[in-house]
Simulated scan of single mutants.
Amino acid sequence: MEVHLYEQLYMHVIREIKEGKLKAGDRVSSEKELAEAFGVSRITSKKALEKLAESGVIKRIQGKGSFVANLAGGLEPKKHSEESTSLVTDERKRPLIGFIISNFSDEFGLRLLRAMEKRSAEHNCDLIIKRTGGSKEEEKRAIQLFVSLGIKGLIVTPIHGEHYNAELLRLVLDKFPVVLVDRYLKGIPVCSVYTDNKKAAKDLTLYLIGRGHDKIAYVSPPEENTSTFEERLLGYTLAFTQEGLKLNQDYCLTNLKGILPINLHGTAIDDDKNTLRRFLEQYPDVKAFVASEFLVATMLAQAIDSLDKSLDEYDIVCFDSLNDYLGKPLFTHIQQDEKRMGEEAVDLLVSQLIGEAVPEQRIIEHRMIMRT
């Protein structure tokens, strides 16, 4: 029968007691010490110590540690086959964590998901996933479903919207382990992992200014209560302030809704393309654009093409661009480190599961990738 990780730690302590290396009253290695010695997660070492305590082999004293119990009748743990069966049953109940996201795609989300899934397995946790399609009701239902399934912690990318989800806020206020990814909630004390979107958008805008543009538009979905879009708009405006340039508010087009997950299959994309065409016709001298997302940049390129204009006349920059068939980026863009973002999110959630304090913010560095 396969011997599971925390069973190895369990039997290690048993052997040390049998061999006389540990006696009644002796301190047993801590969760951290066992995890480091065996190269396992703190969840695994914690489970082994909990099993030892349940068996009466050790006593755990809050704030002091674990100590060998007074085994007057000798150490007689269950037969190995019985012990293994019990532990295998527990192994099947290893911590379940949930991940809720509006949508994911090749340009953003898939690498994040892969990293989270891999990191969860490394921590001996099982990850379950739910896409909400940007629906507030679906997000609420997903949270309720995951809680009913007994998840121990939740990672979530909140939907775009004017109001925070009450179910999510309730979890945060109840001190349930939660980590937000690619978002943060203003005024809400919850651990969040995200790119410095303000700096990233400023970098993109400064790049266009450096190329000689002084008429630069910003195109995006509405920014209300979505920290990602709010920060990107702020970064765009700060670049003008830094360079002493006047910002024309008419160049801020933030009413595009077609790329939001909840609208992807409706007529909103066509409406957005018409809005972009009207903007291009109204402001023909604007030749540079900061697009908040890759899909916005592609809609803009399609609008330019529909007016029989050459894309070579324009400079378009964005976040998270895909590559063309030759492997070259379609746009100069900010590349977010999704792999590290996913790993950090799981690490911070696991830290909460074992009672460790975590920071409210974890900023992940970005890179600018030039279109050649």
Rank of each mutant, 00 (worst) to 15 (best):
D312K: 11
V156G: 09
E50D: 10
E293W: 08
V172K: 09
S120T: 03
L127V: 03
R111W: 00
I259D: 03
V346R: 11
S148L: 14
A303Q: 07
Q249I: 13
Y218F: 14
V40T: 10
C252S: 04
E224L: 11
E31V: 13
D347A: 12
T205L: 12
A142M: 07
G109E: 03
I259E: 13
E16L: 15
E230H: 04
L185R: 02
H160D: 06
G161E: 05
L113Q: 03
C191Y: 02
L71N: 01
E2I: 07
D337V: 05
E243H: 00
S30G: 12
S102V: 00
S148A: 14
S292L: 08
L276T: 06
I316G: 07
E137D: 15
A121H: 13
A291D: 08
E7L: 14
R114P: 02
T267A: 15
T237P: 00
G153V: 06
S105R: 09
L206K: 04
R278V: 01
Y236A: 12
M341N: 06
I17E: 05
Q242N: 05
S29L: 14
C125D: 02
V13P: 04
S351W: 04
E293N: 14
D214E: 15
L233I: 05
E281D: 06
F99G: 03
K246T: 09
K23N: 12
L149A: 15
A357N: 07
G187Y: 04
L71E: 04
M368P: 08
S55W: 06
S86Q: 14
S41P: 06
I269N: 06
V286M: 12
V178F: 07
G150I: 05
E338D: 10
L247Q: 00
L112K: 06
P261D: 02
V156I: 15
E50H: 03
E33I: 01
F289I: 00
D270L: 15
E162A: 13
R60P: 08
A37E: 02
I100W: 03
E54A: 15
A217F: 00
L22C: 14
K51N: 13
E344H: 08
F331D: 03
R183K: 14
Y283S: 10
I364S: 15
P359K: 10
P95F: 11
E313W: 03
S30R: 02
F146K: 05
L180A: 08
H366C: 12
H265R: 12
L260H: 01
L110S: 09
T205D: 10
I43T: 01
D250R: 11
P261E: 01
D214L: 13
K118T: 03
